[in-house]
Structure formats: structure tokens, C-alpha cells
Design a protein around this nucleic acid. Structure first.
Lengths: 201, 201, 201, 201
DNA sequence: CATGAATGAGAGTTCATTCAT
DNA sequence: TATGAATGAACTCTCATTCAT
């Protein structure tokens, strides 16, 4: 029943075409927006007849959903944001910042689409918020572990998580070079206040 | 020529109508997006004929520009982000965070439009980046002054500025309640690392 | 408030255009059917742009409804089928048959549309059945009056009404010449059985 | 050549498939109309690929023709409408009315299609008219025989035939229950006029 | 015999925009 | 200033039909 049927050559080709369409849609949607992209434009890009798109997707709306699902990155997000709880923050945070930055780089186009359409479509907005929340929660969990381990002082770790992740996102959106990341981590770790540590000397 | 003529009644009415149209456009554009809003919809909302809109604005594109200009908030941004350089950070930063958060609250609709269309229209994107850069620069300037005053330790103030502002933006986009703001400031000030200060005792 | 505003010239022209569109739609729908008629075809017939049709009607479906309403003929039906109850059948029935036949002639096109689309659209089917029922009822009422007056023998007048009206309809659908109508009336009146009346002489 | 080859298993299967397609087409065409039914819909209903339909039928148009031919009912019509000329009208007419009514019941779907498409396609219209004419002629022939036999008085038998058949058709279209049929026959036989027969007593 | 990917024409509909009134 | 009839291009989507597999 549930045995993995070897797909026929035709099925493979069909799958390739679907992939091709999703890829082109990802490209165009991120460049011109979803409303700004016409089915004909997409068809021309791929080099097929407009009608064919409706063989693979129910509607333009459906295509948007499928693009977001196909190029979503929740698994990657989890991989990046679940570090070993034992590793010290000094080592982990720069890695996370960088890995997250790179993930944004790679997933920039879906994110564009996600943000843009999320501003207008209720359901996508919900998904977007849910995703950011999960991301923050994951990082906060790690930070909590480090607090427990005595490396970090007790504090509102969720805000810290947001601070790190959101800043990385914004740095990325603004095309800031990734070398700022280590400053970011350093500031988060040590704060910006002049320490009265000197005084004790 | 440029003398301030007392506007005639007709001119006043015209100005009111323009205002009315801009207001409705702001509303609709932020709710449904620019492409998602039709001229007829706008006309119906205001209760005028579609043709009339073209007496006040050159095109739908022009209308978008005018909305962004009319409801832009660079002056408010400056007011909020240029505190007295002498006031201590402890006092100023919470105020800034809160004022900035409230500004976003008030200007939420233009920002939606700005972000959404900025993702697709080159020119708006530039304006958006320029604005965020200026905002960060302003805050960084204040921080620099406090470093000079010895209140803050020397560090990459621009990153700090981004961290604060971006996080506030994101907290707002995610509808997080404003009570997180004071945690934010506290963390930025003191960092999250466990201090070895104790040791000097 | 409810005073009859003299319509402006523009309003008159608009009304003429609407009429023109309905007329053309009646023509085309009856000739090619509703699905068989394209909006472009209709527009070309009238000599306007396709888009204009949607200025006057909500959709192609709406246009169908409006055509049927505009060219419906329930009032005429009533006029034709409510004869003076005092007049004798011999005089009235031929008149009715003829007037009804002529009405069909004049309203042939709506009827075509009505029948055709009624076979496929629930709601139109209901309206059609209701109309035929009313027509039969009206004629049956008259016949009842004549039974009461002693001119006709007691019988199922509703069946007689149906017999007359339906036969006229069918004769018309089949393009039978109207001279058959008097035979029809004669048969209904006297039946076809050989009378044994002669015998009593 | 024309010898009756025992059909191979494949041929039998093919025939079954053709039958299956015709059956489904009959169903769908009568429910949604010919234009309202898509090849894909038909294919889905039967559970085959759209392309297969073109192995069995030349085109959608051809399919319509084949449906009408396959489910036509001229033979049944003849069987029903050619009673023994010797049998008396009193016995035969009720039988005919009922048998004809039942035939309509059974053949309702083809008739729907026939009527609907006949209103729009010249050729089908001709066939429809021809069929009704033949039916009327057949019944008229029987009536003529009964006139000759002295059971019926001389009259325009063709009109009587139309009257009976058309009324039955219409009763059927309007979903009137079949108990009206005997009233119909009775009226046709005896007329509705008050007889002066009494007088001769 | 059977599939379903692919086509391309054309469907209904929307919409920014113009312009006579 | 204001109207809304009119345009025409572009849009999404459907569908009969073909054909390589």
C-alpha cells in the first residue's frame, strides 16, 4: 500500500515542471510582489502556456501558498536556533547570529513575499507572527539554560532573544554588512553602561 | 507672487477634499495594499465620482507618493530622537523607546504602506532605508555624546541604536505590549552576562 | 422627496444605452443561448467596449435576469387571460386562443430564453412553473364562471385550461399556422365523440 | 465483412466504456446543459482521463449527437402510438396518454437535452419538430380510423392528436401528477359544452 | 486502450484613465 | 468643482483538443 512507488519518467518530469514554476514564482513574487506578477509573465518566464499553470495549481492564490510552503524554512530555523545547552554563550551567540544572518540571506526572497503579503492577508500574517514567536522562544530557551548554568544573570530572556533576532533581521533588510554582528553580541553580553568595576580596584 | 493670499472658500473646500482623499487612501492602502485598492473603491469610500480623483492627483502612483509624503513622520522622528545630550541615558532611553513605540502606533498605517511598497518599488525602498539610517544616526549621536560624558563605555553606538530601534519596531509589528520596553532598555544598559563585579569585593 | 425628477439629458442617454444592451442581449440570448453568447459579441453588436456592459450590469448572470424581467409578460398575460366572466365561451375562447398565440409570437424570444435556461437554472425553472400555473389558473377561473352560468358542464376546468394553453404554446413552438386555433376551440367545446344526440330525434 | 464476428473481450470492454460515457454525458448534459458540461467534468465522473473521450467520440459536438441518437426514443414512440385500429377510443386513449406520460418520465433527460439544444442548433430543432410531427401523425392516423369506424365524429384529428400529446408533455414538464390524464381524455371525448341532449327526452 | 501534460484561444471581468457634460 | 459614461488593455481562469508516452 504505502510502498514507495518508483515514479515514472513522466511523473518526474511533471515534478520538475512544478518545481520550475515554484522557483520562477518565488523569483517574480519577491521582485514585483504577488499582485504585481501576472500569470502570463510567469508562464513566459518558464516558457509555457499560461493555462498550464492551472494544471499544477488551483489558482494564483494557491500558487502563493505553495511557494511559501515550499520555500519556508522552519526546519532550518530550528536547526540554527537549537544549540547545545552546554556550550557557552560567548561561543554560541556569534554562531547563531551569523547562521541566522546567512539563513536570511538564503531565504531573503520568501521573506520578502511573506512580509509583503502578510501585511495584507490575515492568514499569512498569523503564520508570520507564529514563526517569529517560535524563533524567539527557541533562542530564549537556550538563554534560560545558560542562566541556569550560571553563565548569564537572570533576566527577561525573551526580550533578549527578540533583540538579537530582530536586529539581525533589520540589519539584513537594510543590507548592513555582517561584521556588525559581533558588536551586536558583545553589546548584548556586556551592556553599554560604564561599569563601576573600576572602582573596586 | 508668493505672498500668502487668504484662500478663497473654494480653495478651502478643495483642500478639504484633497485631505479627505488622502486620508481614505491611507486607510485603504494600508488595509488592502496599493494594488489591492481600486480607484473606484476609493471614490466610493469618500463618496465622490472616480473621475474627481484625477483632478487632485495625477495618477494612482502619484496618489501613493502624496500619501507617503503627507503622512510621513520624519519631523516627529527627529523630535523624538534628538534628546538633550546632557540628560542621562537612564532617563532618556526609556522615554525614547516609549515615544518611538507610540510614534509607530500612530503612524502604523503609513509604515505598512511604506514597507509593503518599499519591497517592490526601488525609489520607496531607498527612502525607507534613508529614513531608518537617519533615525539610527540620530540616536547614535546622542549615545556618542553620553560616551563622551563618561556615562557609557566606548562602543559601536550605531549598532546599539539599531538594536533599540529595530527591536521596538519588531515588538510593535508583532503587537507585543509596551511593557517589554523597560526590559529592553535595562538589558541594553547592563548586558546579560553574569558580572564578575562581585569578585572585587 | 418622491417627486418625479426630470431626468437630465445624460440620464436619458444612459437609459437608452441600457435599453439598447437589453435589446441586443434578448436577441443574442434567444438566438445562441445564454452560454453561447459572449460579452464581446454583445458589445460588438451594440458597438461599445466590452467593459461598458459591466457599468450597466453586475455580471452576465445579472444581465440574464434583467432581460427576463424587462421582457417578461405577466401583465400582458393577465390582460389576455382575464376576460369578462359574462361573455359566452363561444365568443371568448377563440379570442383568448388567438390573443395568447399572438402574445407568444411577440414574446417568443424571452420565452426561448426562459425555457432554455429554466432547464438548467433552478430559480428560473421555478419562475417558469409559477408563471404557467398562474396562467392556467386565470383561464380556469373564467371557465369556472361559465360552468356556474350553466354554459359549460361541470368538469376539471384546470385541465381544460392547460389543454388550451399548452396546445397553443406547442402549436406555436412548432410554427403551426394559427388557423388551427379555431379547430382547437371547437374540439374542446364539443369533444370528438360521436354524439348520440341524433338518436333522440 | 459484415458477418457477425463474436466480439473480442477488448471490444466488449470498449463497448462498455462507450456506454458508460454516453450514460454519464446524458446525465450531465441534462443537468447542466451541453455548454455547461466540460469534458474534464465528464471524464472525472466516469473516472478516466479527458483524452480518452476523444478515442470514442470525435468532438464534444459529436458526443451530443451520439447521446441523442443512443437515447432517442422513436421506436418506443411508435410502439406507444400505434394501437390496434379496431380497439375503441375509450379504451385506447387512456392507455396511450398513460404510456406516453411514462415514456416522457423515462426519457426525461434526453428530452431536456433535445429541447434545450434544439432551441439553439438548427439541425436538432428540425429533428425535434420532425419527431413531434411524426408522433402527432401516428395518433391522428388512429383517430382517423376511429372516425371511419363511426366511433368518432369527423373533425381535424391532427389538432386532437396535438392537443392530447402536447398537454401530456406539458403536464409532465410541470410535474403534474398523472391522475389528470383521465380528465384530459374525458374532456377530449365529450367536450366541455353543456349538452342539449336532455332536451330530446 | 489509456494517460495527463501541454496548448492556445477565448471567456468573464476589472480597472486606471479620459472627457464631454 | 464634479460627474459618470466610455474605453481598451490586461487580468485570471476555463476548456476543447492534441499527442507523446
Amino acid at each position: 500500500m504505502s510502498e514507495q512507488k518508483t515514479p515514472t519518467k513522466r511523473e518526474i518530469q511533471a515534478e520538475e515542471r512544478r518545481e520550475q514554476l515554484l522557483q520562477a514564482a518565488l523569483d517574480l513574487f519577491s521582485k514585483r510582489g504577488w499582485d504585481g506578477t501576472s500569470i502570463k509573465e510567469l508562464a513566459d518566464t518558464v516558457g509555457v502556456a499560461p493555462g498550464l499553470i492551472y494544471h499544477y495549481f488551483e489558482s494564483k492564490e494557491d500558487l502563493l501558498t505553495k511557494v511559501i510552503e515550499r520555500y519556508g524554512f522552519i526546519p532550518e530555523l530550528r536547526r540554527v536556533l537549537i544549540p547545545s545547552s552546554e556550550k557557552p554563550t560567548q561561543e554560541v551567540l556569534p554562531e547563531i547570529a551569523r547562521a541566522f544572518y546567512d539563513l536570511l540571506e538564503e531565504k531573503g526572497r520568501v521573506i520578502c513575499i511573506f512580509v509583503r503579503e502578510g501585511l495584507v492577508k490575515e492568514e499569512l500574517h498569523h503564520r508570520w507572527v507564529a514563526m517569529t514567536n517560535e524563533a524567539c522562544k527557541l533562542l530564549a530557551n537556550y538563554l534560560d539554560a545558560r542562566v541556569e548554568a550560571g553563565e548569564l544573570r537572570p533576566h527577561n530572556t525573551e526580550v533578549t532573544a527578540r533583540m538579537i533576532l530582530h536586529t539581525v533581521v533589520m540589519l539584513h533588510l537594510v543590507n548592513a554588512p555582517p561584521d556588525r554582528l559581533k558588536d551586536l553580541v558583545e553589546i548584548v553580553m556586556n551592556g553599554i553602561a560604564q561599569r563601576e568595576t573600576e572602582n573596586c580596584r
